[in-house]
Nucleic acid binder design. Structure first.
Lengths: 123, 123, 123, 123
DNA sequence: GTGGTCTAGACCACT
DNA sequence: GTGGTCTAGACCACG
């Protein structure tokens, strides 16, 4: 079973999107692999402290993106290949890096300061 | 008059919150100073391509946070001191840096790789 | 053994309720009589092409309504008297007739047209 | 504005489907015409005593069936032509008549008895 | 005011 | 237990 922890740091976007991103990031990190079983709606919902329906929405969209497969009565299952992983990788990295860089620029922070800040807070 | 540009970097959160963050970031950057005049609701709305009501909501919340003050007519004015700036600074930087760091960690990227990535994408 | 056929005419309501109604209608028609043996859950489930749990739920509610009784083993038995039959009769007929009448009225069909329609479609 | 009354007689099917059928029946009856304005989500919801979201779901499906058109900020509007009306007419009549006839048959009621019943209850 | 979306809780059918 | 659906309430953006 996939380990879900260190979750929900971004309280701005809808929860179901955060779940989607979390799964996508886990795939990139290699923690979530092809044929892995996803935790059930209820399990993940109680783990994250949200409603099962919210998890269901995330799973449903992951299914539409052909990242997982759901069957009634059975666990949801990860279905990915190298090609999909690469696409997810590119999408996430582009989004994440760009948004932080734009934020930093808007705050008038230089590249050097940004890097220092990240080094300091990485811990 | 404050310059509003390079807006809408974050399409996830409510627009009125993005406007609030934009103002807060401008304050940290030093582009927005005490006693500066905010653009009118109509002007900013057309500049950002959103509904005046949405700008109104952002201004209203900025008022409640005592960052701007509505004066006679439609003009609003920035009212901040060093203490408020510091608070905003800490809040924003902490949020932004933490969210990027968490994202990177979730993707299994090391600190060194993260810094390299930011250097490369900073342009 | 009670004959179960021509089932699933109403795909809107929960299946277990359709089973209940089916039994109730059979009672009114006189096809299901006091002390008749109900088919076992497994048998009826496979006959209707539904899950045994669904049949189980219908039987359970029929028990609570005191229309059937579970005896030793898996067999259930119909337990009704004239009074219960009358109650069921009134409930069902009122519901069914009213719903068709209301539907017809909403469609602006006159009583005469409605009767003609039923005669034509009765086959 | 379309008049909504004598509603919800069929408590078996989902509410949003009942609303859809109600609108479709009104179209057949000629009470709802092309270019008519639908009541707003909130108005109809409070009229029917249901949640605005339930009405929204019905409207959304009516939109997908190209029976109404919705635009954000504006009222929803009926968009039908003779061809659509005929299709709806055939669908509804077939469903309604068949379901009542099947129910009657299951209850062992003859055609004559069924017609008598309808005549008696029509009032 | 309008419609659109997100979150939530309860229920259903199925393994 | 599993996933799927319906109903509900609050919030958002728009006119």
């Amino acid at each position: 079973m996939i380990a879900f922890e260190k979750f929900i740091v971004d309280d701005k976007s809808p929860i179901y999107m955060q779940i989607i991103r979390y799964v996508e990031r886990g795939i990139i990190a290699g923690n979530i692999k092809n044929q892995d079983e996803m935790p059930s709606r209820r399990v993940l919902a109680s783990l994250l402290g949200v409603n099962p329906n919210t998890v269901q929405k995330a799973y449903h969209m992951l299914e539409q993106d052909e990242i997982i497969e759901s069957r009634s009565g059975a666990k949801s299952c990860v279905v990915i290949d190298a090609d999909k992983i690469k696409k997810i990788h590119d999408k996430l990295l582009k989004n994440d890096a760009n948004s932080i860089i734009t934020a930093m620029k808007q705050m008038g922070i230089s590249k050097t300061e940004a890097i220092e800040l990240i080094e300091k807070l990485w811990e």
